[in-house]
């Protein structure tokens, strides 16, 4: 028994180290000066430049045009993450509602068509999507950044499964109580889906936050840069013989990691509840 416990702990400790060490290294390295990092490489010790570096990253206007600050990029990332998550939730709930509750012809077919798009990630349709956005002159707008990503097979699937598990009698009781389709959706289904919505919000927020390829294509104007895009930008800036701002890149990476971590930590109980149980 004791022996078992020891090996369990070993495995867990190794696993945590495996996940944590790169983060710790990134954080520690970000507190060193750029020159230090250039000559000494990654570091596991405290560098002492913490305040300067982070302040600079968040407030100094950088980039070619000198217009974009770290906080602006954080804001853009939030707009993308939240818009992406909320949009996906609204769309997929409505789609699932139609599929589960309305006797449409081809409802099952519609569901499977949506479902098979799971097999087609954004990367497959990135060129046509770009073309469409460009034709609509939506490049370098939040709309262009968010809307093409909103259709969600995953979300639709989860909500469909959830709606299917809601007892029919609830719909029937609501019908007798005089609730039409819209009232039933807003008064009954949405509140019942709370935990599910929270779970999907977290997944989708993190997913949206971490988007890289699409913002890269869609935004050339630095005012629309997200954090993910910004990190790359810093390392690209080679002016003359200047050393790249490694410290800033690391600081930005650490900053970029924080919001998803915070959200997951705060909402984890909801998250688990939403995916495993339902309160019906």
């Amino acid at each position: 028994m004791q022996k078992n416990k020891l090996s369990d702990h070993l495995v867990l400790i190794l696993g945590s180290l495996f996940l944590m060490v790169p983060v710790v290294v990134a954080f520690m390295t970000s507190t060193h000066a750029a020159a230090d990092i250039h000559s000494n490489g990654l570091s596991l010790t405290w560098g002492g430049n913490f305040a300067e570096t982070y302040e600079k990253v968040l407030t100094r206007e950088g980039g070619f045009t000198g217009q974009v600050t770290g906080s602006r990029m954080v804001m853009n990332s939030f707009i993308l993450g939240i818009g992406f998550a909320l949009g996906k939730i609204v769309l997929s709930m409505l789609a699932a509602y139609a599929i589960v509750y309305f006797r449409m012809r081809f409802a099952t077919l519609a569901f499977w068509v949506i479902f098979t798009t799971l097999l087609l990630p954004l990367e497959v349709r990135i060129m046509p999507s770009y073309q469409v956005m460009s034709d609509l002159s939506l490049l370098n707008t939040y709309t262009g950044l968010i809307v093409p990503l909103l259709a969600s097979a995953t979300g639709t699937f989860y909500f469909r499964q959830f709606f299917k598990s809601v007892p029919d009698e609830l719909l029937e009781a609501a019908r007798i109580d005089g609730a039409g389709p819209i009232k039933f959706f807003i008064d009954v289904l949405v509140p019942l889906s709370r935990t599910m919505i929270a779970a999907i919000f977290i997944i989708m927020f993190v997913y949206g936050w971490n988007q890289y390829l699409w913002p890269m294509l869609m935004t050339t104007d630095e005012r629309f840069f997200t954090l993910m895009r910004g990190i790359k930008q810093i390392l690209q800036v080679w002016i003359g013989s200047q050393i790249p701002d490694y410290n800033e890149a690391f600081a930005l990476a650490v900053l970029a990691m924080l919001p998803p971590v915070v959200i997951v930590v705060i909402f984890q109980s909801w998250f688990i509840k939403g995916l495993t149980e339902s309160d019906k």
Binding site: E169, L170, E172, A173, R175, G178, V188
Partner: peptide, 20 residues
């Protein structure tokens, strides 16, 4: 006529109360 307009009320086996 729609159920709501029939002037009836129903009690279900599994109660069908709105849980929220």
């Amino acid at each position: 006529i729609e159920p709501a307009e029939r002037d009836i009320a129903m009690v279900f086996q599994n109660y069908a109360l709105y849980p929220h």
